[in-house]
Design a binder for these strands. Structure first.
Lengths: 203, 203
DNA sequence: GTCTATACCCGGATAGAC
DNA sequence: GTCTATCCGGGTATAGAC
């Protein structure tokens, strides 16, 4: 309900919408962005294709001209989230040096990716596994988590490393529940998570 | 799909189902339990009344004889979750002593409540705010979180207390993503969270 | 209290004109 | 590339017999 609410049939179609200047057509990425935001607001199942098309500024049928279906949008969004996360593991800092340092690097970068790819990662973290697409994404996510879990086991062995790793991932991932871009700078967020995770609430 | 799958019309109705011995009728609480579990598995919107009634071992119509509707089930489940959480704040340990100790008490008890009321709290933490019921529950949840946030501000003032409180709640709440009763004893869970939260990953 | 049958609506997706 | 109109399945919920 941001801009063009059509109270009656007067609002003209076609060139309408939020596009800036250049006659930019609807790209897949732009529609995925719209969809991801809507999915996060109301939940995937509670979001109808009608909702999405209206958010994009066109009718449901026109929307289908650009996108094959609802699940395709979800898949594209999840792809983007997973690419961001696995990209971290491919960085030098994730495989070089002592386990603590590698873990620290990953955690800090993970916070950054969560912040920059917020809507996509949020979607990933709220999956239920109802469709094949969702189960595939969940499996990849588990892969990522297990990489971190192995590192945690190397860092601290006095507590159950499985539990410790879960709590670590939980802390980082919980960002999606409240972080919104703009209010807190990402750099500050990274520092806060780093300190809380590695030092705790007490000094 | 646990027990009585009716391949055809043969499976008899009535006394069928999972009830143990005594002719226990369907209580609201028992149906809410069934519903909460199903909601968490597939998501609230993706769970149909047909799903719920089948999980309860009766038909959809019979199910409606006991429950006024889907949202009533959600409301009852959320009530139970919120009762558990606010019960903590009413305990002596939550208001007596130094801020650190009160915070520690609340966190430890919160872990216990999350573990024992897992399906209900999980539901609460995954709300989207689509209905009036959901928005009401979310408001109460924010109340709870703010009480904790105030305590955190009294404990550690060098980091942004708002961010620190969010991370603390996030860590505790993230339990719902992986904890399942039986595997890890609750007492052990409490210790793990306590150490991770207050001491961090490094000593 | 349980069932079968059904009303009613809304969601995803398609047809086909412009 | 957009629209109107429509199909169809499945969802919540109800009616009413047993």
């Amino acid at each position: 309900m941001t801009s063009d609410e059509r109270s009656d049939g007067s609002a003209r179609p076609g060139r309408a919408g939020r596009r800036s200047g250049h006659a930019e057509p609807y790209t897949l990425a732009s529609l995925v962005e719209v969809a991801a935001r809507a999915f996060n607001e109301r939940g995937y199942d509670a979001t109808s294709m009608e909702d999405l098309s209206r958010a994009a500024g066109i009718t449901k049928s026109s929307f289908y001209h650009h996108v094959s279906g609802k699940e395709a949008l979800l898949r594209a969004a999840l792809d983007r989230a997973l690419d961001g996360l696995f990209g971290i593991l491919a960085e030098p800092g994730a495989s070089a040096g002592a386990p603590v340092d590698r873990l620290r690097h990953i955690v800090r970068r993970q916070v950054e990716v969560l912040a920059t790819e917020l809507p996509y990662v949020t979607l990933l973290l709220r999956l239920h596994g109802n469709t094949e697409t969702e189960r595939w994404a969940l499996a990849r996510r588990r892969e990522f988590d297990q990489t971190i879990a192995r590192l945690v086991a190397d860092v601290r062995s006095d507590v159950d490393p499985v539990v410790a790793a879960r709590l670590l991932s939980g802390t980082v991932n919980s960002l999606i529940e409240w972080y919104r871009p703009g209010r807190v700078p990402v750099a500050e967020l990274v520092e806060a998570v780093d300190r809380q995770v590695f030092e705790g609430l007490l000094r």
